[in-house]
Design a binder for these strands. Structure first.
Lengths: 160, 160
DNA sequence: TATATTATTGAAAATGATTATCAATAAGGA
DNA sequence: TCCTTATTGATAATCATTTTCAATAATATA
C-alpha cells in the first residue's frame, strides 16, 4: 500500500526535501511522484505524462518535463538512457538499496531486462570503487549506472 | 603510428569485417574510422563531423551519422550517452581491453572523467557477471557501460 | 578494361524529444 | 484574507538525429 496521494497533514517522505529547497508542494508534483512511486519500471517522460494525465488531465507535458528535471536535480529521481532516443526516469529511493538494479540491454530489438540478483560481491565492489573514486577525484558520488549491452536470444539467432 | 588511411592493397583490420558484411569501403568510412582511431576521446557526431570535414570537406553530416550507426551495428564503435542530449562515439577495439575505461560524470557541470585504473577485482567481477547474465538470460554480451554520477570538487562547493 | 548493378552519398526537408517564452494561476507566508 | 513569487500550461522554438531522393561511385561481371 502506498497511501493516498492527498493525505492531509502528515505529508510524504519527500515533503521535507521540497520545503528545505524552497520548492512548493503542488498537485502536479505530487501526482508525478505518485506515478513514479507506483510504477517500478523506467518510464519515459511521455509515458509518465500519459499516466499523470489519467489521474489529473490538467497537467501538461511541459510540467512533467520540468518536474522530472527538478526531481533529478534534487536526487529523488534518476535519469537513464538506453539509447533509443528518449530518457527514462526512475524513483531513486536509496533506502537500503531496495529496488536498485542494473540493466541488460539488447542492441538488436531494444529490449531491456532489469536484474537485481547481484552477488553481494558486486555491491561490495561498487561501494569500494565509489570510495576510491571519491577520494582520488574529489567527487561526491551519488549514483551509478551499470548496463550490459548485447544480443538477446531472439536477436542472436537472426544475426549473421 | 597509425599508418596512412590510404595505404594500398594491404587494407586495414576492419576491411574484412566490411567486405564480409557486404559493405563497401568508401572514403567517408575510411576517414571517419581514421578520426575515431586518432582521437581516443568520446566524440559527438558533430565533433567527428568537424574533424572529418577538415580532412575531406565533401563529407556531410548525414554521412557521419549514417556511418556511425553502421559502425555501432557492426560492433566496431560504441555509443555512449552522458546525459547532455548528444551521443558520444568511441572506437571499441576490444583488443586486450586496451583503452577500455569507465566514466565518472559530474551532474553539475557535465565534466566527464575517464578512469581505467580498475582494481583487478573490478575486471574479474565484470567478467563473472557477464558470464552469469549470459547464461541466465541467453544474452550474448558485447559490451558494458559503467558510469558513476556525482558532483565534482568545484560543483560540490557551490551546492546547498 | 569497359559496363552494369546497386550500395552509398549529400542537401534539404522532416521528425521527435526536449526546452524556452510568457501571461495566468495558485502555494505559502504575512 | 492578501501579497509575493514560484509554478503552470499552451505554444513556439531548439536541436540532435532521420528520412527522402536524385546523383555518385564501389564492386562484380563481361
Amino acid at each position: 500500500m502506498h497511501g493516498r496521494w492527498c493525505e492531509r497533514g502528515s505529508g510524504k517522505w519527500w515533503h521535507g526535501k521540497f520545503r528545505g529547497g524552497g520548492y512548493r508542494i503542488t498537485m502536479p508534483r505530487q501526482i508525478i511522484l505518485q506515478v513514479l512511486d507506483e510504477s517500478k519500471k523506467h518510464l519515459s517522460a511521455e509515458e509518465i505524462y500519459l499516466k499523470v494525465h489519467q489521474i489529473y488531465p490538467a497537467i501538461g507535458l511541459t510540467t512533467v518535463y520540468r518536474t522530472l528535471e527538478l526531481l533529478v536535480k534534487m536526487g529523488l529521481v534518476f535519469k537513464f538512457d538506453f539509447g533509443d532516443g528518449r530518457a527514462r526516469y526512475e524513483l531513486s529511493k536509496d533506502d537500503k538499496d531496495s529496488n536498485h538494479h542494473h540493466h541488460l540491454i539488447c542492441t538488436g530489438c531494444g529490449r531491456v531486462i532489469d536484474y537485481d540478483d547481484f552477488i553481494d560481491e558486486e555491491i561490495e565492489l561498487i561501494k569500494k570503487t565509489e570510495r576510491e573514486l571519491s577520494k582520488k577525484h574529489g567527487f561526491k558520488i551519488r549514483n551509478h549506472i551499470i548496463q550490459f549491452y548485447g544480443l538477446c536470444k531472439e536477436c542472436n539467432v537472426l544475426e549473421d
